[in-house]
Design a protein around this nucleic acid. Sequence first.
DNA 1: GATCAATTTGCAACCGGTTGCAAAAATATC
DNA 2: GATATTTTTGCAACCGGTTGCAAATTGATC
Lengths: 332, 332
Amino acid sequence: MNVTLKDVAERAGVSRSAVSRTFTEGASVSEKTRRKVQKAADELGYRPNALASSLTTGRTKLIGLISNNFHNPIFLEVFDLFTRGLQDRGLRPLLVNLSGETEPESSVQLLRQYSVDGVIVASSTLSPDFARAFRDARMPVVHSFGRFSASPEVHIVGIDNVECGRMAARTLLGRGYRKLAFLGGPESATSTQDRLSGYLEVLSSQPDVTVTHSFASAYSFDAGRVEMTKLLMTDPAEAYFCGDDVLSIGALSAVGSAGLSVPGDIGLIGLNDMEMARWENINLTTIHQPIRQIIDSSIDLVVRMLDEPYGYPETRLFPCRIIERGTLRQAV
Amino acid sequence: MNVTLKDVAERAGVSRSAVSRTFTEGASVSEKTRRKVQKAADELGYRPNALASSLTTGRTKLIGLISNNFHNPIFLEVFDLFTRGLQDRGLRPLLVNLSGETEPESSVQLLRQYSVDGVIVASSTLSPDFARAFRDARMPVVHSFGRFSASPEVHIVGIDNVECGRMAARTLLGRGYRKLAFLGGPESATSTQDRLSGYLEVLSSQPDVTVTHSFASAYSFDAGRVEMTKLLMTDPAEAYFCGDDVLSIGALSAVGSAGLSVPGDIGLIGLNDMEMARWENINLTTIHQPIRQIIDSSIDLVVRMLDEPYGYPETRLFPCRIIERGTLRQAV
DNA sequence: GATCAATTTGCAACCGGTTGCAAAAATATC
DNA sequence: GATATTTTTGCAACCGGTTGCAAATTGATC
C-alpha cells in the first residue's frame, strides 16, 4: 500500500539499513549511497513511518496536551501558543479534553497506550493529582498554570497566585476603595484559593476595610454574571477582584443589566489580560498573566525532560503586572 | 522498561498470541485462558501499545484535526466539540495548527508519517486544496465548515453560505434599511465570498437599495474594529451584515467609540451565534450556525470512511436561522 | 603495492504487537 | 469408546522501522 523502507532499498539497490541510515540524523552513510537513496525515495515519495520507528527508538514525538478548560476564551490563545510552540520544535500535540473527568487514571492509560514522550497539563482547575499520576507512570510531565509550591512534586510553570491576590488588594486600596470583595472561580480551583488568600492577607490587616468573598461555579461568563447578579441584590461591595477576566466580563454585564455603571458605581479588576479585555466595549482593568512566557517555558521544560527524564522538579514563576484600563476609578 | 505482551504471556504461562487475543475484540480465546491472562495483565498493569498494534492492523485511531483559526473564540467551542466527539468514539485528535501555512504538502506528510486514520479540516478560511491534498494522499478526509458544492471532491459539512447572505439581506430589508453594506472576512475566504454573493443577489434586484461591501483582513475582533472605524469616516451605511460574529463585535466596538449607537444609528447583524453573542453587553442579532450538528456529522462521516474509504463524496448542509437580539431596529 | 586504520555496509536480531495456519484439545455424534 | 467436528492454542512470519556487530570497502602511510 504505502511506500516502505524496503521499496526504497530495492529501487536504490542497497540494504534496508542504508535507507534507514540516510533518514537518521548522525548515522554513518557515504555521500554516494545517500544520494542514491534520496533519489529513490524522492521518486517513490517515501516518508519514514514515525510510529514504526518509535518502536525501536522509544520516541514518538507525541506530547499529550491535556486540559479541561474549553469555555474560557483565553484557552484558545493557550492552545494556539502550545500547538505552535510544539510544532516549531518538531513535536505533535495529542489533545485530551478532560471536561468532566475527575480521575486521572484513564487519561494516563490512554497516553501510555500512545507512548507519548511527555505530557503537559494545562489548567489551573485540574487537581495536582493529574500531574502526579503522570509522574507516577514515569512520563515527563509539566503542569502549566499549576499551583506554586516550594517543594514541587512535578514541574510547575505559572504565576504566584497569592501575590496576584495581594497585588489586586493593594491596587484597590490605593484607589480608595474600602468595602471590598472577591469573586472567585470554583472554590476547588487552587488558583482561586490562592488568589483569595493573598487578597485577604493584605486586606485583613487594614483598619476600616471590609472584605467578603464568593465563588462562581466555573471560570465562565455565565457563571460570573449569575454570581454578580446575586451579589447585587443585597448590599454590594464598592469594588470586586474577580478571579479571572471572563468572570469579570460576566460581572460587568450583570452590573450593566442592573442599571449600574462601571467604574462609577462599582469597580472591577480581573486577572489574565486576555485579548478580549482590551476590546473597547469591555476595557477591563486587569492583572496581566504572561501566558506566552509560561507556555514557552513549559515547552522548554518538557523538551528538556525528553533527554533527562529524572531531573529535579522545578517551579517557574513569572511576574504579573497591573494593566490599567477603565474599570476602576482613579485614586481619590 | 514497560510491561509488554511477552511479560504477561510468561506470567500467565501462555503464548504471546493468547495474550494478544484476549485483548482483541472477537478473537478466539477460551474463558479459562482469558481469565489467566486478565489476572496476569492486571497484576502487571499491562496495556497494549496502540502504536505497535497499528503496525499490523493499519489502524491508529488517530485523527488529524487541522485548523488555522486560533483567534476566533468560536473555535474554542469547535475544538471542545470535536475533541469530545472523537474521544467518545475512541478516537484521538492530533491537532495541527496551520496558522500561516499556505501549502498543504507539509501537513500531508506530517499526518502520513503518523499514519492517521482520517483527517478533519476544520476551517472556512482554508483553501479547498488542503482537503483535496489529503484525498490525493488517499486519507479519509472531511472538510468541516467548507464550501458547498454540488459536485464535491471530498466530503463537505457545513452551511449554505450563499443562503445565509440572502437571509441577512431579507432580514435587513424587512427592517426597512435601504442603505446597506457587507463587512466580510478575508476576501480569499470562500465563506466570505459566498455570503457576499447571496447578499448581493437579493439586494441587487431591489429598487432604492444601495449596497457596498468591504473586507476585514481576518475573522477577528481587531480586524472588524479597524475596518468599521475606517468605514465610519466616510458616509456609513444604515446597516451592516458582518461576515462573522467576532467581526460584528469588533464593528460594534468601533461604532461605540465613534460616539454612535447600535441599533439607533447603525444596525448590525452577525453570523455564527457564538456563546459571546448572547452576552448582555453585546446582545448581537445574528444568524445561528449549527456547529454542534456540523461537528457531529463530520465525525460520523470520518468514522464511516474508516470502514469504507472510497465512498462517494457527500455534501451535508445544515440550515441556519436568525437569532433576534438587540442590534437591529424593529421593522418600520 | 603492502599494511594498517577509519569508514561504510549488510546481516540479523529486535521493538511490541497481530494473524494465517496447522496441530492440539475440547466437544459432539453415534 | 471411536470418530468427526469444532474450538482453542502456539508457532512463525510479518508490520516498518533501528542498531550492534563483523565483514567489506575506502583511504592513509610508508
